[in-house]
Design a protein around this nucleic acid. Structure first.
Length: 406
RNA sequence: GGACGGGUUCCCGAGUGGCUAAAGGGGGCAGACUGUAAAUCUGCUGGCGAACGCCUACGGAGGUUCGAAUCCUUCCCCGUCCA
């Protein structure tokens, strides 16, 4: 633990890699006061309950929160089960679907264990905001709403845009930032963390606290990690994310598919590499070394972080084996072939390699299907069991071992 | 409450009676090239069938017609303006 660090050094540490801090002076004061009173700060982080998987983008924020824990402070995780039912409008052009209680429950069950891959469970509070938000009466809601103006609410880029484009914007979505801010009031947040896109929401919390007679929370936002597509922010709904529970091989592969320009950014945001180490990578890149090598080191670092160094090494070797040397992977699903043989299209669909026969037929004509390294194109082909397993390959990365069986 | 405009395949968006599984773009997938990067080029992109074809699909339901995404009725939803 680094609890004994002088305040100025704590500030330096906490400022590393962040997007915005409001305000540094207030943070300094909080740390001083906490140090003198021997009382840990309450660092709030809202968790979206819309999906069960934590990805590297959110991990950026979680890792910052972990730093606070390492300095002796308390992480206060607010599970947005109530606000999840409303749907966070941030950055959306469309009204988000509202989640049911069952969905949220199912999501959260897996969430906890994932969070603790990064956070220290010892210094962590888990709160569901339905705990207090469900209890608000209409009077309470009006009371809350009275403390903020519509003009302030629709200042937001995304709201404004939707209004201008004539897209629907429901009143409940307008309420979302208020409720999220109210969470800060309820849990007496000293600091709130979030992604850069949450900046505006966090500010609302800050202002509401003042209106409820509290000291405003310090807010710290973290840069958004760009997804594997290299364009949009990493997000569950864009399908461009790397889950922290993704199996090593998958995690490795996804990271290898990011654009080269993102390599250093990923090192900074998603690994524990020091500035010096990252500078070295930067020099190797500009020195003309094949970015592939450096990206592979990145991928290994990240897999090591969430699995183990050994798993990272294996994933790396397997990757080279399959994609550089074009060898089949060591592990692949098996499909038992009955003695009379089965039509190739049946095999592909029944094994789940492709979703429909039409699709299988298409891939066959596209030359995407290989049997033991031989491209095949005959949709009539009957595959019979051999005395040794035969490997079926669909596209670049789908493999199946065909074995004798019934 | 009134007037008007709109709801199309994963997304955006064309399409106003048969030539429409529906232009175009995006995304995705596949092939070539590669470093499973990017860029580029090419192809594919509802399902079933070997195939003539059949089924499902243009907000929901019903109707007109030999034939409807396209016309009519009704319901639902969204937006704009007026009150």
């Amino acid at each position: 633990m680094t609890e004994k660090l002088p305040v100025s050094e704590q500030v330096t540490l906490l400022k590393r890699g962040i997007d915005r801090l409001e305000t540094e002076e207030e943070l300094r004061q909080l740390l001083e006061r906490s140090h003198q009173a021997g009382k840990p700060l309450r660092v709030k982080l809202g968790i979206d309950a819309s999906g069960p998987d934590i990805h590297l983008g959110f991990a950026v924020v979680l890792r910052k929160l972990r730093q606070f824990q390492d300095l002796g402070h308390t992480a206060v995780l607010i599970v947005g089960d109530f606000t999840g039912k409303i749907g966070d409008p941030t950055g959306r052009s469309k009204t988000r679907p509202q989640l049911t209680n069952e969905q949220i429950k199912a999501n959260m069950a897996r969430y906890r264990e994932q969070v603790f891959k990064i956070l220290n469970p010892e210094r962590c509070e888990f709160r569901f905001n339905s705990e207090w938000l469900d209890k608000l009466s209409a009077t309470d809601v009006v009371n809350l709403a009275a403390r903020y103006t519509v003009a302030r609410l629709i200042e937001r880029e995304d709201f404004k845009k939707r209004l201008e484009e004539g897209a629907p914007l429901s009143v409940h979505e307008l309420l979302y930032p208020l409720f999220q801010g109210y969470d800060s009031v309820i849990v007496f947040a000293d600091i709130e963390l979030g992604g850069a896109d949450q900046y505006w929401n966090l500010l609302v919390g800050r202002e509401l606290q003042v209106r409820f007679g509290q000291t405003p929370q310090v807010i710290i936002t973290m840069p958004l990690l760009v997804g594997t597509d290299g364009k949009l922010k990493m997000s569950k709904s864009y399908g461009n994310y790397v889950g922290i529970t993704d199996p090593p091989a998958e995690m490795f592969g996804k990271i290898m598919s990011i654009p080269d320009e993102l390599i250093l950014n990923y090192f900074q945001l998603a690994t524990d590499k020091t500035d010096e180490e990252i500078a070295l990578f930067a020099r190797r890149l500009s020195g003309g070394e094949n970015p592939r090598n450096i990206k592979a080191e990145l991928a290994r670092s990240i897999v090591a972080l969430y699995h183990s160094p050994a798993a990272a090494r294996h994933a790396s070797e397997e990757f080279d084996r399959v994609f550089r040397e074009k060898e089949p992977p060591t592990q692949m699903p098996e499909f038992p072939l009955p003695a009379p043989g089965v039509n190739i299209i049946q095999v592909i669909v029944q094994s789940g390699l492709l979703p429909s026969k039409s699709e299988a037929r298409r891939k066959l004509t596209e030359g995407a299907i290989y049997l033991d390294g031989q491209r095949i194109s005959d949709p009539e082909l009957i595959v019979k069991p051999q005395d040794r397993p035969v490997i079926l390959k669909v596209g670049k990365r789908r493999f199946l071992r065909l074995v004798a069986g019934s």
